[in-house]
C-alpha cells in the first residue's frame, strides 16, 4: 500500500494520462461497437457485439473511476467518471485513431476489433503484473473479457477472409484501410513509457505474431505498408471524432451540471 501511494505521487500526472488513454480507448471502441446494436447481420452476433461493447464500457468505467479518484485526491475537487467522459473536448481525449474511425461494414468492424483487442490482450496481460494494485485489479478483470473479444473477432476475420469472394475482397479492403492506424497502438508515447517501456517490444512482437497467424488462416495477405498514421494519443484526432463527441456529450453539454 505504501509503495502504491509513493508511486502515485511520483507519477501522478503521467499516471493520470496513462489511465485516461486506456479508458478512452475502451470507451470510444465501445461507442463505435454500440452503434451496431439492433442493426447486426445475424441476431446472435448483434447480441455478441453488444456484449463486447458492454465489456468495453465496463472497462472504461473502472479506469475513469480510478482516474477520477486520483484527480480528486490531487486537486481536492471531486471529479467523477462522467466529467472525464462527457466534459473533455477532442484535444483532451487520448484514444488511438484506430478506435474512433467509423464502423464501415461488418468486416471492417470485426477487423478493427481484432486489431485492437489483440493489442489489449498482450498489454493487459502485462498490466496484471503492475505494482499499482488498482490497475492490476482492473487488468485482472478485463483480461478475461478481452480473451473472448480476441477469440470472437479472430473467428470472424477468418470466417470472412476465407468465406466467399465478396467477403474476402471486403476484408482485404478493411485491412488495407485500418492497417495504417495500427502503428500508433504499438509505439509507446511519453506518458506510457514509465508503465510499459520494458514490455512494449514484447507486446509488439506478440501482437505481430498473433496478427500474422490469423491473417494467414484467413487467406489475407499481410500488409507491407509501414507508413503509420498517429496523433490520437496526443489529442490530434480524425475529423470523425468531433461528431462522435458531439453526439455522445450532447445532454451533458446542453444541460450542464444535472444529475441523470
Amino acid at each position: 500500500m505504501l509503495q502504491h501511494t509513493v508511486q502515485t505521487c511520483i507519477h501522478s500526472d503521467t499516471q493520470l494520462k496513462y489511465l485516461l488513454q486506456l479508458a478512452d480507448n475502451a470507451l470510444i471502441l465501445s461507442h463505435r461497437n454500440s452503434q451496431w446494436c439492433g442493426h447486426g447481420p445475424i441476431l446472435e452476433q448483434d447480441i455478441a457485439l453488444t456484449n463486447i461493447a458492454l465489456d468495453q464500457l465496463g472497462q472504461a468505467r473502472n479506469l475513469y473511476q480510478y482516474a477520477a479518484l486520483l484527480l480528486t485526491e490531487k486537486t481536492g475537487i471531486t471529479t467523477t467518471e462522467d466529467q472525464l467522459a462527457y466534459l473533455r473536448d477532442t484535444g483532451e481525449f487520448k484514444n488511438c485513431l484506430l478506435a474512433e474511425l467509423p464502423n464501415g461494414d461488418w468486416g471492417q468492424t470485426v477487423m478493427r476489433n481484432f486489431l485492437i483487442s489483440s493489442y489489449q490482450f498482450f498489454l493487459y496481460q502485462e498490466l496484471q503484473y503492475s505494482n499499482d494494485g488498482q490497475l492490476k485489479a482492473i487488468a485482472d478483470k478485463s483480461i478475461k473479457e478481452i480473451t473472448y473479444h480476441v477469440r470472437w473477432s479472430a473467428d470472424w476475420v477468418v470466417r470472412l477472409g476465407d468465406g466467399t469472394a465478396e467477403s474476402h475482397a471486403r476484408m482485404v479492403q478493411a485491412l488495407e484501410l485500418l492497417w495504417a492506424y495500427t502503428g500508433e497502438m504499438l509505439e509507446p508515447c511519453d506518458y506510457e513509457l514509465p508503465f510499459i517501456a520494458k514490455q512494449s517490444s514484447f507486446i509488439k512482437a506478440a501482437w505481430e505474431a498473433k496478427i500474422a497467424a490469423v491473417l494467414a488462416e484467413a487467406n489475407l495477405i499481410h500488409p507491407t505498408n509501414d507508413w503509420m498514421q498517429s496523433g490520437g494519443k496526443k489529442g490530434i484526432h480524425t475529423e470523425h471524432f468531433g461528431y462522435l463527441l458531439a453526439e455522445m456529450q450532447f445532454l451533458q453539454r446542453a444541460y450542464p451540471g444535472l444529475e441523470w
Binding site: 447481420p41 445475424i42 470472412l160 476465407d162 468465406g163 466467399t164 465478396e166 467477403s167
Partner: peptide
C-alpha cells in the same frame, strides 16, 4: 440486406 454477404460468407466458410 447489408448482412447478406456476412451470412453467405459464414455458410461458405
Amino acid at each position: 440486406a447489408d448482412g447478406a454477404w456476412v451470412r453467405d460468407a459464414a455458410i461458405a466458410h
